[in-house]
Amino acid sequence: MLQPFGSDLWLCDGPTVTGAAGFRFPTRMVVIRLPDDGGLWVWSPVAVSQELRAEIDALGPVRHLIAPNNLHYTFLAEWAAAYPLARVHAAPGLSETVAGTSIHHRLGNVPDPEWSDALDQVLVPGNRITTEIVFFHRDSSTVIVTDWVQQIPSGWFRGWRALVARLDLMTAASPSVPRKFRLATTDKTAARKAVQYILEWEPERLVFAHGAPRATDGLQTLRNAFQWLLR
């Protein structure tokens, strides 16, 4: 269930979800306890269970539910129903109809005042597939990426999907930006500016939705992943 990954930061791996063309993806949630009132900030929620709810409730009250791009919303409505006092924050492009729940706030480059003391964020623009918000948790020096960086384990996919995943760099030997996201980047100047902002955080740790988290070398891992855009 919840696994500590830094100061007031926990990870939770959830069930697989099925996307386009039958591709299955692992899921991961990040929970951060905010310093002001001990409220919880829940990023990319995974499936709700009684056991997980008990662990979450033991940490503190859920204040914020985060959909960091328009692809990561599968369990958002479940959490909104379970925690009706929590505010739902979503990246541009995710509608309430698709999410299945009310959206109280649209994420952008400016952190919400309720978490600005603990987290920084930047919107990565200029991509036809998705607009993603990348976050930085200061106390644990952790960057939180959703789909822009991936490293799904080799052998996760089978048959023709394994070939597509390998060619797309989803299962590359090191964390990488999938080729489909590179090709879908229509405004490289804007995307490059956002990535440079991320690198200025100089993170020690790195968490992404689809791949093993990195407790060290976060900055260098990101530099390597975005070399195609920065050169």
Results as ranks from 00 to 15, higher is better:
Leu65Val: 06
His104Ala: 15
His89Gly: 05
Ala58Pro: 02
His104Asp: 12
Arg87Ile: 00
Ala82Thr: 11
Tyr73Glu: 00
Glu55His: 14
Pro68Ile: 07
Thr97His: 13
Arg106Ser: 15
Asn69Pro: 04
Thr101Phe: 10
Leu71Gln: 11
Leu94Glu: 00
Ala82His: 07
Ile56His: 01
Ala58Lys: 06
Ser102Gln: 07
Pro61Trp: 10
Ala80Asp: 01
Ile56Thr: 07
Ile56Leu: 13
Asn69Gln: 09
Ala81Val: 11
Arg87Ser: 14
Leu59Gln: 10
Val88Asn: 02
Tyr73Met: 06
Gly108Met: 06
Ile66Gly: 01
Glu55Asn: 02
Leu59Tyr: 04
His64Ser: 12
Ala81Thr: 15
Ala86Ile: 01
Leu107Lys: 07
Leu59Met: 09
Gly100Glu: 08
His105Val: 09
Pro68Ala: 15
Ala99Asp: 01
Ala82Leu: 11
Val98Phe: 09
Ala82Tyr: 01
Leu107Tyr: 03
Glu96Cys: 13
Glu55Arg: 10
Tyr73Ile: 00
Pro84Ser: 06
Ala86Leu: 08
Gly108Gln: 06
Thr101His: 13
His64Leu: 15
His72Gly: 12
Leu85Tyr: 00
Ser95Trp: 00
Ala77Cys: 04
Ala82Phe: 04
Glu55Asp: 15
Gly100Asn: 08
Val88Thr: 05
Ala67Asp: 13
Pro84Arg: 08
Ala80Asn: 11
Val62Ala: 11
Ser102Glu: 04
Phe75Ile: 07
Asn70Gly: 08
Glu55Gln: 14
Thr97Arg: 13
Ala58His: 07
Leu85His: 12
Ala58Arg: 07
Ser95Asp: 09
Leu85Gln: 11
Trp79Ser: 04
Leu107Ala: 10
Ile56Asn: 00
His105Pro: 00
Ala54Trp: 08
Ile66Pro: 05
Asn69Met: 04
Pro61Asn: 01
Leu107Glu: 03
Ala77Trp: 01
Val88Ile: 13
Ala67Tyr: 06
Ala90Lys: 06
Gly93Arg: 04
His64Glu: 03
Glu96Arg: 12
Glu96Lys: 05
Val88Asp: 02
Asn70Pro: 12
Asp57Phe: 02
His72Pro: 08
Gly100Ser: 12
Tyr83His: 08
Tyr73Cys: 10
Leu71Phe: 13
Asn69Leu: 04
Leu76Gly: 12
Ser102Met: 07
Val98Glu: 11
Val98Cys: 01
Pro92Phe: 12
Val62Cys: 01
Ala80Thr: 14
Ala80Ile: 07
Trp79Gly: 06
Val98His: 05
Tyr73Arg: 05
Val98Ser: 07
Ser102Ile: 14
Ile103Val: 15
Leu85Trp: 04
Asp57Asn: 14
Phe75Glu: 04
His89Arg: 14
Pro84Cys: 05
His72Leu: 07
Ala67Trp: 09
Arg106Thr: 14
Asn69Val: 09
Glu78His: 14
Thr101Asn: 13
His104Cys: 07
Leu94Asp: 00
Ser102Gly: 15
Ser95Val: 11
Pro92Asp: 09
Ala80Pro: 03
Ala80Tyr: 01
